[in-house]
Amino acid sequence: MEFLGFSLPSYGWSTVLGSAISGVFLGSIYALVALGLTLIYGVLHIINFAHGALLMLAMYAVYFLWSGYGIDPYLAMLIVVPGGFFFGYGLQRLVIGKASHGKDEIILLVTLGIAIVIENLSLFLFSASERSVLVPYDLDGIDLGVTYAVYPELAALGGSFLITLALWIFMTYTDTGKAIRAVAKERQGARLMGINVDHIFAVTFGIGVACVAAAASLLVPTYAVHPQVGSLFVLIAFTVVVLGGMGSFVGALVGGFLIGVTEQLGRLYLGESLGVITISVIFILVLLFRPTGLFGAKSG
């Protein structure tokens, strides 16, 4: 097969389909990381540069809960998700909100600063070496015919769906969820209805970090932990958020899967290192034709 002068290897449909399916699994994690990012952007109107560092921190938490206490990475979700929420709540309420004095450009720098602090502190405390969790079931799975899906992949997909669904229900039906949506568009109106905007900001940030903590639990069984692991994912998550439309939940989900599948197919055809450029290609293509992203609201 030839494409733009490159001769591409040709594969049977089952190989391609198998590759696409593993892209769906990978994409579900991207979606989850992007979900937290897009939520924070949509409500606080800031880009959280600390997102990747927080993911890394949560992955270490999951790792140490396993290595220190023998807690299964999936079970650790019961600890790291609430833990992530409260950490995020405190971080926004006590550090980001206080330091920024309501100026968006300062918030940006504050989150960037937090990322640098967390990453270097981790490097100092945990060293640069990779650590992996060994779970007894990481190679077991289900034969899908075209590919073999291991349980951690299935858990990632199922977990991401459940968490997205839970978040959607929360945002649609609870008063706090509604208050978050109100604050996203009309802060002054929300204040006058007695909604404490600072509290809602912190709750939103907390939920964003909780999403990242859940993603960490789902990642650790298959991904090694090291201080730079966050930037790997968050760069893609940024792409997903912009691609899907800033602030859009559906966009994060669809964008995550689109990027995951693209990346895996790119790797299949172009090789491990060159394959990743397909992410940028699809990103640029989408933005050329839809500058607001796939599900982004028109500006204004």
Binding site: D175, K178, R181, A182, A184, K185, E186, A190, I195
Partner: peptide, 15 residues
């Protein structure tokens, strides 16, 4: 007015 433009009438009233 400062209503919540991204939300339904019902949700505005609920809030």
């Amino acid at each position: 007015r400062r209503i919540f433009p991204n939300m339904s009438i019902r949700e505005n009233l609920e809030l």
